[in-house]
Design a protein around this nucleic acid. Sequence first.
RNA 1: GGUCGGAUGGCCGAGUGGCUAGGCAGUGGUCUGCAAAACCAUCUACACCGGUUCGAAUCCGGUUCCGACCUCCA
Length: 488
Amino acid sequence: MQDLYIHNTLTGNKELFKSIDSESVTMYVCGPTVYGEPHLGHARPAITFDVLFRYLKHLGYKVRYVRNITDVGHLLNDADEGADKIGEKARALQLEPMEVAHFYTKKYHESMHKLNVENPSIEPIASGHIIEQIEMIKKILDNGFAYEVNGSVYFDVIKYNKTNNYGVLSRRKIEDLMDNSRVLDGQSDKKNAVDFALWKKASAEHIMRWPSPWGDGFPGWHLECSAMSCKYLGEEFDIHGGGMDLVFPHHEAEIAQCCAANKKPAAKYWMHNNMITIAGQKMGKSLGNFITLDEFFNGTHEKLDQAYHPMVIRFFLLQAHYRSTIDFSNAALQAAEKGLLRLFNGINVLNNLTSSSMSSVDISLLQSKCDDAMNDDLNTPIVLSHLFDAVKLINATYEGKHSLSHSDIQILKLLFDKYVIGVFGLYAIEKESTNSEFNNLMKLILEIRSNVKANKNWEMADQIRDGLNQLHIEIKDTKDGSTWNYKK
RNA sequence: GGUCGGAUGGCCGAGUGGCUAGGCAGUGGUCUGCAAAACCAUCUACACCGGUUCGAAUCCGGUUCCGACCUCCA
């Protein structure tokens, strides 16, 4: 097994990855709250950890990957009177909360499928694990790290911090947190502003509610991930992932809950992908500047010059390291689109390359260079740079400037297959129509034009080309005949 | 305000002390009836001011600017 190094937020360092069980890996990633359209921000963790999931399997691990769906409404704000997001949406649309959750879960799945994100091994749903969450609260209460007030249960952060470190993950000091926490005008039942809810009493109007030992209510903001990761991966597992915005308070609270209940901080390695920005500013629901994935796929947002294929989005994200912010723009996405086409064109050329008796270039280090980059905290942009170097070499070989032996060609094919298809999960953008009648028609037109060209009737040939151009169909004359594409 | 991160060529984006990724755009060329596409070649960098060093985009100090978290967020 190769040595894989990953950045661990818990220690702030790049560390050699060693799974608890030498043959398998357990991984939990925070999934979406399903009360809105999936957007570009959802694509980043999904793709980052999809690549990790695929890579770990490539390395030979058996991987159990859990990614949750949150369909329990979290409160809009910290005040006791708050409403939950799914409940609000349901009320606005006059639907059952479950209708809202189900609708957006389906949308999320459709978008993930288009992005070629593999299904996780288990995709648990928060509302299906109320019992587990209640049991966990009981444990935390029994261990003395929570208290009940008026039908709600709160985590006692101050008490917890006396024997544990609240702030291990986000490197915050509890004194700073207390200084900076909002004062809630006496609305809260909490002993301290830094405490957080494990169970909230449901007000009369609150639609999403479940019975509990403390009365009708709903689970707190951070509890579901602790309960579900524990249920499916155990009290200790290997990797916990999510967006950087979840480090505090969400993941910090998870660690506190798990330590309070099980005396174990859940995961060994905490990994966080960075945010996507638009014009340098974070894209987020609260900022109202997010673009949904459907809008990208269809080109229907005012900020978009064109539609972008899901593979372009995927490739665009892989061109940046997952821990860097990545700035969205049409120019950047169009550059990614062309780069992706170049990459697959290279694969196409490779598959049609004629082998020579021996190679004029040394490709022996290429594989290890890619592996090294990948093992260095999943440096996908570096892997891509090596693959583009290989594309250059492949094209030069096609032009006759280099030669490649049969075995070297096989090595290259395996390399591209492994990384581009297997680990990065990319596939070629199919630009031709799936309508076979139309394809046959186009074939006929191109045949006629090719006859016209053979007779050197350039005027007619150009007329056909220009006419098709007006219909947004682009003709390319190559050595081996003409092909067509839809124009963007 | 507190904590943390960033500033790389026209754009995106790697890179932690010398060998100066990669993609896109630009420019020149090959190919082509022409064009497009494709391919090849190639220019432009390391926010600012000091310091350490034989040598710094990379280390240290300071300055400016930007962002993230501290409230739901991927």
